[in-house]
């Protein structure tokens, strides 16, 4: 898990919360996306587009990997870290 990826994921989720009028929540890696942060599927889709812009990849689009389970902020960080490490 690289600090740069973790920061990008936290920034993206914070931007989604701000854009949807849910300001002022801090985002921590251990948080549950749905239960703690209230993210729905649209919020997640937006987060993925923002991360594609900042990190240059979309691990949810490649057909090679089945859609991994994403429950926590740190799950997202792991998925992007692995995608960026892959050759």
């Amino acid at each position: 898990m690289t600090p740069a990826v973790a920061a990008a994921v936290v920034t993206a989720i914070s931007a989604v919360l701000r854009d949807t009028g849910r300001n002022g929540r801090s985002v921590e890696p251990a948080m549950l996306l749905a239960a703690d942060l209230g993210l729905d599927s649209l919020d997640l889709a937006q987060t993925i587009v923002l991360l594609e812009r900042s990190l240059g990849c979309d691990p949810f689009r490649s057909a090679a990997t089945a859609t991994p389970a994403v429950r926590t902020v740190s799950d997202l960080i792991t998925i992007y870290s692995q995608a960026l490490d892959a050759p």
Partner: peptide
């Protein structure tokens, strides 16, 4: 519309 793996498309 922006393609999305999660919701099909997203409004952009």
């Amino acid at each position: 519309g922006l393609p999305s793996g999660i919701t099909g498309e997203l409004v952009a």
